[in-house]
Design a protein around this nucleic acid. Sequence first.
DNA 1: AGGCCCATGTAATCTGTTACATGATTCC
DNA 2: GGAATCATGTAACAGATTACATGGGCCT
Lengths: 201, 201
Amino acid sequence: MTLRHAVLAALLDEERSGYQLAKAFDLGVANFWYAKPQQLYAELARLEQGGLISGREVVQTGRPNKRLFTVTGAGLAELEKFTAAAAKPSVLRDDLMVKVQAAGRVDTGTLIAQLTERIGFAEAKVELFERLLRTMRGDRTEEEFLRDGSPIGPYLTCLRGLAFERGNVEWCERAVAVLRARRDQDEAASRSSLPEGDDHR
Amino acid sequence: MTLRHAVLAALLDEERSGYQLAKAFDLGVANFWYAKPQQLYAELARLEQGGLISGREVVQTGRPNKRLFTVTGAGLAELEKFTAAAAKPSVLRDDLMVKVQAAGRVDTGTLIAQLTERIGFAEAKVELFERLLRTMRGDRTEEEFLRDGSPIGPYLTCLRGLAFERGNVEWCERAVAVLRARRDQDEAASRSSLPEGDDHR
DNA sequence: AGGCCCATGTAATCTGTTACATGATTCC
DNA sequence: GGAATCATGTAACAGATTACATGGGCCT
């Protein structure tokens, strides 16, 4: 049950609507947690009922009204308690890893295509995070911001997201290079010896 | 439903028991997926019933008998299908990120303690992965292994795990340094001006 | 006219976690 | 004598995903 705390943390520096949170927690942005809109609306309802956040209706013209939520004192206390509790190590769960684990037994072309697609996604996120960081620090340098900028939390988590996506790009590129080289080698080998379909494994 | 495919991928290069899989998928090793033992035993049962894997009883003396599983033709076909399907981008979910997101509003000392603990875990995993890689490649250099070593899948996923954990160490160290510097600054500031409890935010 | 953005949810299903259960062997 | 390792599960509950639902405004 950590979505709870992720929501509280996201509401700390400014009040937000469910929709805004949904944007922030969706893939493409998610720099510190991921969740679907439905999950968020449900969690917001529970949090409000428990008095950890409070919402206020904002009437809008030209578009549906929305509810903006703020963390209450009780909410902050809950976050404090959560922070003090032992963190469970993060769990890795990525489809692409499973596919690569099977490399050599499944079609190499398909794998290369998937890795290439991922490179695109990851690069887009790298750019997004870089833009986000620039926006947060404004005209200051990174060092200056880290020394006394605010809010510092989102900046730090964004830095982690950036490094993570850069790691993705590097690894995917490496994997593509390795798989291509091995495929070319296998093809050359089967051409020279046995022209019959000698599957590369 | 990707645990299914993760299990298939893990059984590809050699037959394993539920217990062995549980070890491999547990934190501390998990280089490409994470799951609890109970989940694995349940999934193995389902996979066997579906004919995607087949198990054989191995009678042991001095310890309980075990069942070793292998991927069937149908299982490999399923993996192939999975590989060709679009991968959903990986979801980030890490308690520690949530805590850091709240930096500045929750106790800094607690945060630093948590980050320091994580550094320890991550360093242990770095060493573990390095050992695993060395074992896999034997007396070959990394380049040699990547050119024609086998199995290549586990080696590549392990490389990703290694890079990920190194990224964790670097980021945690950075975050600790930043938070320490800011805390010291705040303390100095409140000592010189207002000795009254002027919370750093 | 069709599709996307804003804005919020409900219901059913699937996945994952926690707690419980058993029992022999080996190591300290 | 107690803890850890090997080995396999069941049952109850919590958490997450998928499908469905609504409705006005804006852009092309």
